[in-house]
Design a binder for these strands. Structure first.
Lengths: 221, 221
DNA sequence: TCCCACATAGTAGAATAGTACCATTTTTAT
DNA sequence: ATAAAAATGGTACTATTCTACTATGTGGGA
């Protein structure tokens, strides 16, 4: 049986920088298994292209005006579950990557990767659904392990008392000071003082900052 | 500069089946970078060996009497954080793998993998801390995605406009209405209306609820 | 073309949050 | 036992949020 490489993958690319985008189009066309290549200036254009004729793979820049990669990805995975999404980015920050994986991105590549890796990624997402490079794999592993840490409610830096912690929880539940005071059988003054002290300790400008802290420190999940 | 392969890795193996264990010892000795190889019948014996002279890598069978791989692993990563642990198993069940990663295992291999993969895994955990094969990577990814599903069933169908999203982001940054209005060159009234509409859509009692939504829906990470 | 969603802007008043202090009692740690 | 930290309650004031409406221009979809 002869081994014949077929051009079996259509790839669309979305990036707002024309020069980069056109260069990518040319590069993609040199990949042996890539068949048709189309390009879009932003996520919105890309969605229109996909609507007309869904490709096997799309390559999306995360930073775009009009409709950025995140939003585009959300739409794509929801409406076209068979289209594999490869996200390109300059940020290797953990937050972004984790969020992208949660959304359902099939590969996550930094813009300084070698063309060979992109080619490999395209074939892998097409054949096996997901391309695992070390970048993503390390983030995932760290996340899973940190979850374990987060399960025991200890704060890293700031020393928050039990009472403060209790009140912070209730604040995060959208309770007002009055409601918290009632629930805990305390004076409103007391609750307000606790909240003020919390803001002081955490360095928050307002209650919003408290909630942010609660989420980011893992107190709330 | 000449490239010389040094035998720089000591490997200990723990498995209760003598035949398999001894065969593994022989196999390990054929690996070009493996230096000393010692073997143990169970986790307890292994820990004693490690205590005397910590190796770079240990290979542990998950199913063992006396002290099984899980318990052994817990002990090892706690007391000897520099020793890399490769877990061997017959089960590819998700639960096991996730748990092992949480505990801090550095590689997870099925017993039917090729010797070459074991060799590669040993070098990788030694040089880069963690060996990511598809088995583990897929489990991790699935876990991360399932978490997302678990924490937002009801938030999915809210339709938030671009402007609202933009303002929600700024609210989460602890900006007041006044500050947001200034930054976006809008009337304070407009910003307030957007926020009110957001609260309506989301079903929030106050700004706290908006921030919660932003975090729990993954808008903010 | 007509309608609707969206973004924009407004008024006015009630409710709540936030600032800046101080005082007392209880618990905890040295 | 004594000092420190935490929890409680207070006054007085200002700032901001929240509610409940109305209204206009614009762009996209049926």
């Amino acid at each position: 049986m002869t081994k014949k490489i077929t051009r079996d993958i259509n790839v669309y690319i979305a990036d707002d920088h024309t020069l980069f985008r056109k260069a990518m189009v040319n590069l993609l066309r040199t990949f042996s298994r890539v068949n048709e290549v189309k390009d879009a200036e932003n996520g919105k254009e890309l969605l229109e292209l996909v609507k007309k004729e869904p490709p096997q793979v799309v390559v999306v820049d995360m930073q775009m005006p009009v409709m950025d990669g995140v939003e585009t990805c959300e739409n794509l995975v929801k409406k076209y579950p068979d289209v594999k999404v490869i996200m390109l980015t300059m940020h290797d920050s953990e937050k972004y990557i984790l969020h992208m994986v949660e959304l359902g991105v099939h590969a996550f590549l930094l813009k300084n990767t070698e063309p060979e890796e992109l080619e490999h990624a395209i074939y892998t997402v097409h054949d096996k659904d997901f391309y695992h490079n070390d970048l993503v794999a390390n983030v995932l592993r760290k996340s899973v392990r940190e979850q374990l840490e987060a399960r025991r409610p200890e704060f890293s830096n700031v020393n928050i008392t039990d009472r403060e912690k209790e009140i912070l929880h209730l604040i995060c539940k959208e309770l007002t000071i009055k409601e918290i005071a009632q629930r805990l059988n305390l004076s409103e003054h007391t609750v307000r003082n606790h909240r003020t002290n919390l803001m002081e300790k955490i360095g928050a400008e307002n209650a919003i900052g408290l909630v942010r802290f609660a989420y980011e420190s893992g107190l709330i999940t």
